[in-house]
Computed example of a mutant assay.
Amino acid sequence: MNKDQVKGTAEKVKGKVNEAVGRATDDPAKELKGDLQQEVGQTRNDVGNAKEAAKDAGKH
Rank of each mutant, 00 (worst) to 15 (best):
Glu31Thr: 09
Lys55His: 15
Leu32Gln: 15
Val13Pro: 00
Gln38Pro: 07
Gly8Ile: 07
Glu31Asn: 11
Asn49Ala: 12
Glu31Phe: 08
Ala57Pro: 02
Glu52Phe: 09
Gly34Asn: 06
Val13Lys: 13
Ala20Ser: 07
Lys51His: 09
Lys7His: 09
Gly41Arg: 07
Ala10Pro: 05
Gly34Val: 00
Asn45Ile: 02
Val47Phe: 10
Lys3Gln: 12
Arg44Ala: 11
Val47Ala: 12
Lys14Asp: 15
Lys7Asp: 08
Thr43Asn: 05
Lys12Arg: 13
Val6Arg: 13
Asp4Phe: 15
Gly8Arg: 09
Gly58Ile: 04
Ala50Ser: 07
Gly34Leu: 01
Ala54Leu: 13
Gln42Val: 01
Ala50Gly: 00
Asn18Arg: 11
Lys7Tyr: 15
Thr25Ser: 09
Glu31Lys: 15
Asn49Thr: 10
Asn18Gly: 04
Asp35His: 08
Gly48Glu: 04
Asp56Asn: 09
Gly15Thr: 06
Thr9Pro: 03
Val6Asn: 08
Lys7Leu: 14
Lys12Val: 12
Lys3Trp: 05
Lys14His: 13
Asn49Phe: 04
Pro28Ile: 06
Asp26Phe: 03
Asp35Gly: 14
Ala24Met: 08
Gln37Lys: 13
Asp4Trp: 09
Ala24Lys: 06
Glu11Trp: 00
Val47His: 04
Thr25Lys: 03
Asp35Val: 15
Leu36Ser: 04
Ala50Trp: 00
Asn18Ser: 14
Gln38Asp: 13
Glu39Trp: 05
Lys12Glu: 14
Glu11Asn: 06
Glu52Pro: 00
Gly22Asn: 03
His60Ile: 02
Val40Pro: 01
Glu39Thr: 11
Lys30Met: 02
Arg44Asp: 01
Lys30Pro: 03
Ala20Trp: 05
Val17Trp: 02
Arg23Pro: 01
Val17Ala: 07
Val17Asp: 05
Lys12Asp: 02
Glu39His: 06
Leu36Ile: 10
Thr43Trp: 00
Gly41Asn: 08
Pro28Gln: 10
Lys51Val: 14
Asp35Asn: 13
Asp26Gln: 10
Glu19Pro: 00
Lys59His: 07
Arg23Ala: 09
Glu31Ala: 15
Asp27Thr: 06
Glu19Thr: 03
Lys7Pro: 00
Val17Lys: 10
Ala50Glu: 09
Gly15Leu: 03
Asp56Ser: 05
Ala53Gly: 06
Val21Lys: 11
Val17Arg: 08
Val40His: 12
Val40Arg: 15
Glu31Ser: 13
Gly34His: 00
Arg23Cys: 05
Gly15Phe: 00
Asp27Pro: 10
Val40Ser: 12
Glu19Asn: 06
Ala54Phe: 03
Leu36Thr: 11
Ala53Cys: 05
Gly22Pro: 03
Ala29Asn: 02
Asp35Tyr: 07
Lys16Thr: 12
Lys16Pro: 03
Pro28Phe: 08
Ala54Asp: 08
Asp35Glu: 14
Asp26Ser: 11
Glu11Thr: 15
Asn45Ser: 13
Gln5Met: 14
Lys30Leu: 04
Glu39Cys: 02
Lys30Gln: 02
Val6Trp: 11
